[in-house]
């Protein structure tokens, strides 16, 4: 499979909903698609990264209204364990058609739940829409705290928006201050589990979206599966997105491909290095566990 995965179309897009664009990270793709799917009855609810008691710490939540979706819009740059709710959404919440958004590893988890349902009874055919977001690497909450409070010298609760782009991690505060740090300094805070990830643009999602490749305020969208295609066509017909062909935007698909190749090559090297990280008594290498080979 190509580093960008299988896809039916790649488009640069932006939501036409002003209310969503005010809250969204980039083009508002995920929020708009879920709002449309809720409206049309394609999903009964969506598992999203909602607010929690602590600033910028996401808590998985089942959103069943547009207001709840808006409360969850935007990127938080630390992990929201959305799969936590995937069985619960079909039980306590009683959803027959579940939408879920996740980073690539979480969409992989969704597909494993569907193909190998071990403890996930009656979940596989209730996953109606799996939306993926691009992810280079992720942080723990404590790591994000260190970055924002120690490196950028801002309080978590005073931050209005965080953004990664052009080699910088940028923090915008409520009162207008802007703090930046070079992205390469973040590396030591990245979750170890992210260094074995071989997916950048959520290859197994129905639709995946992220800012890379499109101009500011726009998102690059990959429409992948039959399901994803039907939802995208419906949303387009309803006039929910303005779009531009990928070959007419800067920096374009080449940048997405470049970053995907960089991530996968780097992490594949790490996966391979793990095989020979140790030393056996007979002088041959001793390896760590490789999830891509066996459990």
């Amino acid at each position: 499979m190509d580093v960008l995965g299988n896809y039916k179309s790649a488009i640069s897009a932006r939501s036409t909903d002003g209310e969503i664009l005010k809250k969204s990270q980039d083009g508002g793709i995920i929020t708009t698609l879920f709002a449309y799917a809720l409206e049309e009855g394609i999903i009964d609810g969506a598992i999203v990264a909602g607010p929690s008691d602590e600033p910028w710490k996401p808590e998985p939540m089942v959103a069943t209204t547009k207001a709840e979706l808006l409360a969850a819009a935007g990127t938080r740059y630390n992990i929201s364990p959305n799969l936590y709710l995937i069985k619960e959404a079909t039980r306590s919440y009683g959803l027959d058609r579940v939408g879920i958004v996740g980073v690539p590893c979480q969409i992989q988890a969704v597909r494993k739940v569907q193909l190998y349902p071990i403890g996930m009874r009656d979940v596989d055919d209730k996953i109606a829409l799996a939306l993926g977001i691009y992810c280079m690497e992720n942080l723990s909450y404590q790591a994000l705290e260190a970055i924002v409070e120690d490196h950028c010298n801002q309080k978590m609760e005073s931050v209005k928006k965080m953004d990664i782009g052009k080699g910088k991690f940028t923090v915008y505060t409520e009162r207008g201050a802007v703090s930046q740090m070079p992205l390469k300094l973040i590396h030591k805070y990245v979750q170890p589990g992210c260094h074995v990830c071989l997916d950048y643009v959520a290859n197994l999602a129905d639709i995946s979206s992220g800012s890379v490749g499109s101009p500011d305020g726009w998102s690059t969208v990959f429409v992948r599966s039959m399901k994803g295609n039907a939802v995208w066509d419906g949303a387009m017909a309803a006039g929910l997105f303005e779009t531009k062909p990928m070959d007419q935007v800067k920096p374009g698909l080449d940048l997405v491909k470049k970053l995907a190749t960089e991530k996968i090559t780097k992490n594949q090297k790490n996966v391979d290095a793990r095989k020979t990280v140790g030393l056996k008594a007979d002088g041959t290498p001793k390896g760590l566990r490789n999830p891509y080979e066996s459990p």
């Binding site: 710490k57 998985p60 630390n78 992990i79 929201s80 364990p81 959305n82 799969l83 936590y84 709710l85 995937i86 069985k87 619960e88 996740g102 590893c105 979480q106 988890a109 494993k112 739940v113 071990i118 403890g119 996930m120 992720n138 723990s140 909450y141 404590q142 979750q191 170890p192 589990g193 992210c194 260094h195 074995v196 990830c197 760590l288 566990r289 999830p291």
Partner: peptide, 30 residues
């Protein structure tokens, strides 16, 4: 032993979601 100690966990939440007796919660992404 076999996921976090091995440097493989990325905090997706699947384990907590699948546990039939709700013995697992996610605390700060793990």
């Amino acid at each position: 032993y076999d996921v976090i100690n091995q440097g493989l966990c990325m905090g997706c939440g699947t384990c907590a979601g699948t546990c039939p007796v709700r013995a697992i919660t996610m605390e700060y992404g793990k």
